[in-house]
Write a protein that binds this DNA or RNA. Sequence first.
DNA 1: CATGGTAATAACCAGAGGTTTTAACCGGGA
DNA 2: TCCCGGTTAAAACCTCTGGTTATTACCATG
Lengths: 291, 291
Amino acid sequence: MLQYVETFCAVVRAGSLNLAAEHLHLSQPAVSKQIRAMEAELGVQLLVRSTRGVELTPVGRQVYRLARRALAVEAGCHRAAESWRDPWSGRLIVGAGLTLTLFTLPPVIQAFRNRVPDVRLELVTGDSRESLARLLAFEVDVALVTSPEPHPEVQMVPLFIDPLVVVGAPGSVLPRRIGEMGGMALIAFRHGSGLRQYVDQVLESHGARPHVAMEFDSIEAIKTMAGLGLGLALLPLSAVREDVAAARLTMTRLPDWPDAGRHVTLLRRRAGLRSGAVSLFTAISREVLGQ
Amino acid sequence: MLQYVETFCAVVRAGSLNLAAEHLHLSQPAVSKQIRAMEAELGVQLLVRSTRGVELTPVGRQVYRLARRALAVEAGCHRAAESWRDPWSGRLIVGAGLTLTLFTLPPVIQAFRNRVPDVRLELVTGDSRESLARLLAFEVDVALVTSPEPHPEVQMVPLFIDPLVVVGAPGSVLPRRIGEMGGMALIAFRHGSGLRQYVDQVLESHGARPHVAMEFDSIEAIKTMAGLGLGLALLPLSAVREDVAAARLTMTRLPDWPDAGRHVTLLRRRAGLRSGAVSLFTAISREVLGQ
DNA sequence: CATGGTAATAACCAGAGGTTTTAACCGGGA
DNA sequence: TCCCGGTTAAAACCTCTGGTTATTACCATG
């Protein structure tokens, strides 16, 4: 029963039968019975009950992951049907990285909300890899990513290239070539982010080995520090355009690295698994973000 | 309701409510009511009824794909629980290509059935790409593939390298280098198969452009034709070992192409989504197929 | 135009899954 | 030590979902 699965997931999230019952607008014994019925059906114990709530058993953890998937598929099914009945209403869940969410998505969202006001738009942040996984698991309907890996079930729609630029405090000296960045203080993303990997790789291939003075997770932090003259930063143009216009930062592009940039791409499932609102979102994205 | 989903899938497969009801051991009105309830819940028409059964509407087709996924996840959940309760019983579904199924899997299956006789083993054939998709969709628990693409949710276990050899009829002249194959008649797989792509690519990179005299889908057909002297064939060693030993074919390996071979790899989901019997199967595979 | 197939409707019934009430359990503090 | 606040479990009961059978309506076809 799918209902069991839903209840089970709610219990795991809540950490107690009582709390889950409240969230589900059910009584506590109802939840208790459902969980026991599910355990009986599967023949394994899913939760260890204690006086301070419940905890997952190892099997329970496995089942929980599967259960979440099943629920995601079911929710995706509802969204698809809703969107088919009327593409101009329903829900649409968009996945995107933090940078794209902050600097690329807003105009798209605005245009979408103007043109399709009855579609509830939801956002889920996560890097490219996570977004792809969510797309395949029906947790999101469409994803905006950079550096996408092709996947047979996913269709890629290239939107535009967001060039990487070097920014610093107003009046500071900016490099004219990649080589000149050697030894300069760099304010970078924390190791592991997609953008950081890309930057590292390109700098290395040009022999430049700048000193990474600071690492942050947040673009805002990087921009603030760069604006204070504490170092240079390599950021997507979209993230610094306003600051440069307002003279809070200066920027330059590196002529010997002309193709520096993030290929912003929209991902959606292949036709048979796509909901109607996705087409609208795709069209509006292409329109707003140019080609 | 998950039950609706199951009924719906049965109806789609059967093509009629009556037949589906029979398969499900239900009465026809029960099935009818469930479908109508499902349509009401989703707010869309899933099937067009006619006097000769039912057909999917376009939305229905979408929902059907999603429904199949949900069912696969649910079945995977049952298998996982079954296997956890006792890894030495339950079900295990293996995906593999046709060639691997015929020439590599049999000893593994035999060993597995000897050592773990209470686990019901099921096979699903399909190429590497399909097997990977099935693994992720919980339609299979473990897959044997060649030329795997890495995927974050999948763990790869390399098993062995199945070398590619050139075979011909007994007594026929075999090439000693790749270059010598130019102009020779080749009996190959039909265009599109993974092995054919690999062979084409390597031959091309060596400038050899053999004449593809015949194309088949079946290894048996290729071997038969090669045994009749109608041309040479590039096949995995495992597929021709017995025929060479029985002198139905002769073979040679090409010294200027020493790494020719298919990297046979076992794929399984990451730990959290893996069932217990998979570990047993992995261990036995490594043992039987060597390292 | 009857016939054999289809799906839909009506009336009815069993049981899954909900409720409330009550009990049992356990850890922490007075 | 003994209660108190929190937990889950059990019992008794009720509601309504989802099943049944019997019947009807429809449509292609011989």
